[in-house]
């Protein structure tokens, strides 16, 4: 019956669950926009530029996801409040989303290794 007295968990704790898919979306938008912008530029070097951008953006996204996953795993081990169900639940949900997002990032990047930039 202590429902009203306990400090309220801010909604931001839920929004943090969305960080991983947001990283996927940012990665997706960046490579798509990069391809669109590179293709209106001069034809020379399009392929190399796209390659570099893909590598950089993907590395950034994956690093972000790995850091996220590491933090989630660590806080799972050290969290003193084992009893805090919401905390644990949100953390495990985040972890799984991080995994799916990483797969999404890898899939998005896969074609850049095979297809030349800007070819119709």
């Amino acid at each position: 019956m202590s429902a009203a007295i306990k400090p309220v968990r801010p909604f931001g704790d839920f929004l943090r669950v969305l960080i991983a898919p947001a990283i996927w979306f940012a990665h997706f938008s960046l490579v798509y926009a990069a391809e669109a912008l590179i293709c209106i530029g001069p034809p020379a070097d399009q392929a190399t530029m796209m390659g570099w951008i893909a590598v950089l953006v993907t590395a950034a996204a994956l690093t972000g996801l790995i850091i996220l996953a590491a933090r989630l795993l660590r806080s799972g081990n050290t969290a003193p409040s084992r009893s805090d169900r919401s905390e644990a639940w949100l953390r495990r949900t985040s972890l799984l989303l991080t995994l799916l997002s990483a797969l999404g990032v890898v899939w998005t990047t896969l074609p850049t290794a095979v297809l030349p930039a800007c070819a119709l």
């Binding site: 899939w107 896969l110 297809l115 030349p116």
Partner: peptide, 23 residues
Amino acid sequence: PAVTLTLLLGYGVWLMRSHLDLS
């Protein structure tokens, strides 16, 4: 699905590549 879809995606992209080469 992760495994099969990766294979399918790879094949689809490869096929696009070969269409491009034809061009």
